[in-house]
Amino acid sequence: MSEAEPPRISSGAIFRVFLIAGAISFGGGVIAYLREYIVNQQRWLDDDEFLDALELSETLPGLNSVNMSVIVGDRLRGAAGAAIAASGLILPGMIVVMTLGVLWNEQRHNPVVTAFLIGVAAAAVGLLSTVTLQLGHKQFARISDVVFIVATFAAVSLLKLSLVWVLLTIGPLAIWYYRPRDHAGAAVHRFAHLRERLLSHRAHWRH
């Protein structure tokens, strides 16, 4: 990221943009909506800056879209900007999901409601499989990555191990396996990884 001081953007403008992204991003793919608003429409960040922020968002724990809001908000207006951006992003969904939650709680024994939600969950399995395939298709082609993928899946889903232990064992092992050996190679790989992510998020963007 460049060290140049970005122009101050008003709290109201930050809140409005993240609120809209949070309100219209149905069906996941919040990142794609954020990219459209922040890079293409408002031009607050260029593509490289957005990808830098995305790269960090994906490495850190938590929801990628919320992490993105914190990072972009901080860049635009410091700590206040981060708080405003994250609040704007989650506020609409929070209101909708709580309204649905209260209604569901009243109607949770209604077989029509249950049938609808089973259908939704089954479709979500198709959606999650697609997203996993798109994000991981490079990893699926590499034997060392497949070993880590299978080990993680087996530990969590088959052996039912606690996620804390899975992350504390397989995580460091995988990082150590890919420890720095050839600096130039690592830099090239990093770039390829980013390009891949950009394309997959583009593929996710729809009008």
């Binding site: 991981g136 993928i149 993680t152 899946f153 890919y178 720095p180 990093r190």
Partner: peptide, 26 residues
């Protein structure tokens, strides 16, 4: 270079966890 190693190493772990999440809902 450790930054790249962390990303490189955590990527397959994250994919494995996503498959586990999908499997749980399935």
């Amino acid at each position: 270079p450790w930054r790249a190693a962390a990303q490189r190493g955590l990527a397959p772990v994250a994919i494995g966890l996503m498959i586990s999440g999908t499997y749980a809902i399935a």
